[in-house]
Simulated scan of single mutants.
Amino acid sequence: MGTAALVREARRVGTTVARLRELGAGEPEVARAVAGRIGLTAALAEELAVRWAGDHAGIGVLRTLAAQPATGPEWLALFAVHPDEQVRRAVAAHRATPKPTVRALAADSAATVRRAVAARERVPRRVVPALLDDPAAEVRLAMARRPGADPTQLRVLAADPDPEVRAAAAAHRHTPGEALLTLAGDPDLLVLAALAGNRFTPEPALGALTEAACRGLAGRGLAGRTEPGSSDPGQLPRQIVDSLLENGRLPTPLLELFAATEDRGLAARAALLLKARAERAGTEHPC
């Protein structure tokens, strides 16, 4: 029987545990298919780890086991010091990895491993300061994108030197209002668009963003169609305009400003939003 057929057998739902043991001790590619099975038992995962831990040909098996839910904490701790970066990265992301091991991986030499730690649902408090100040932007970006990031962490990330990190902070629901207000004056379009699209951005920040843009963002080196000194929001970069109009919390006076722009398509969109807002409030808005 060829390798492909054996791989299919290893993945088949009805394959017995005894047969899986035989397959796991054979070719590396077949053993990897066994290691990746959904519902793999902890006992079989350990057998595979014992069989392939010292075999360079089985690196693919170890990478799969490091991400396998059935792999136990003891083996994850051992895999955490493996010379292969992909193995350590999988351990850093594994939910069952012991906390001391996670803390050690937060200082790993590979940025991809530290990024996996930063992207965990729960990050040990002891390593948070180091991750917020990590030299690799991808690690700090992972921290900014965590759903569980708290306001204190996001306040730091909102002042990050990398615009992509600041944009992630600008889009996060837990970023403090004062940090969002500061980001309204950011010189990067990516950050401003993220801020405009954040439904938790306070009205003062949305207003500051629009007013700053209308004063001429292009004069501060931003990409877009804005003319220095322009007061017409129709001249704002389209990315920001779309995000602002899609944000249901844009203050009515600013929405009226958009409705009065010379850009007919934009004015029509703003007018429809004003009408819908007036109808929800039980009043009639003159168009």
Rank of each mutant, 00 (worst) to 15 (best):
E85F: 07
L245P: 14
A278N: 07
V7K: 00
P83A: 13
R95H: 08
R155D: 15
T16A: 15
G197S: 12
Q86D: 15
A25N: 09
A77D: 02
N198S: 14
E85H: 10
A35C: 11
T261D: 13
T101C: 13
W75K: 10
A167T: 02
P100F: 03
F200I: 00
A43C: 02
L20D: 08
A53C: 09
E284L: 12
T71W: 06
P233A: 08
V156C: 14
L266N: 14
A49D: 06
P251D: 08
E9Q: 13
P83K: 08
T101Q: 02
R126S: 15
Q68T: 06
A33K: 01
A281P: 05
T64I: 00
R115A: 15
A208K: 05
G216N: 00
L190R: 07
V191S: 12
A130D: 07
L209S: 10
R19I: 00
A45W: 02
A70F: 09
A170N: 09
L272T: 04
P69M: 07
D55S: 15
G221H: 03
G248I: 04
R32A: 11
D263C: 13
A119M: 06
A276Y: 02
L222V: 03
L217S: 13
T261S: 15
A43T: 00
G60Y: 08
G36H: 07
A213V: 00
A260C: 12
R114Q: 09
G54M: 04
G2H: 03
P237H: 01
R11I: 04
A53I: 01
L195P: 10
E138M: 11
A118H: 11
A158P: 13
V13N: 01
R280N: 12
E262F: 11
E284D: 12
A25C: 10
A142E: 08
V102A: 15
G24R: 01
G14I: 05
R120G: 09
P147D: 04
A111Y: 08
A259K: 05
L65I: 07
G39R: 02
V50W: 05
R238E: 15
G229A: 12
V139H: 05
T15C: 12
L189R: 08
L44G: 15
T226N: 08
V123G: 12
V13L: 14
H174I: 05
G185E: 06
Q86G: 14
A18H: 13
D150W: 10
G39F: 00
A170Y: 07
A212D: 02
G221Y: 02
A171L: 03
V113N: 00
G26W: 08
P151I: 04
L180V: 01
P129L: 01
A10K: 01
P251F: 10
A196R: 04
E256T: 13
R11F: 02
A167H: 00
L132F: 00
L183V: 05
E22T: 09
A42V: 14
P73E: 01
P73D: 07
R8H: 10
V128T: 02
E27N: 13
R114F: 14
I240K: 06
D150G: 13
L274F: 03
L141H: 09
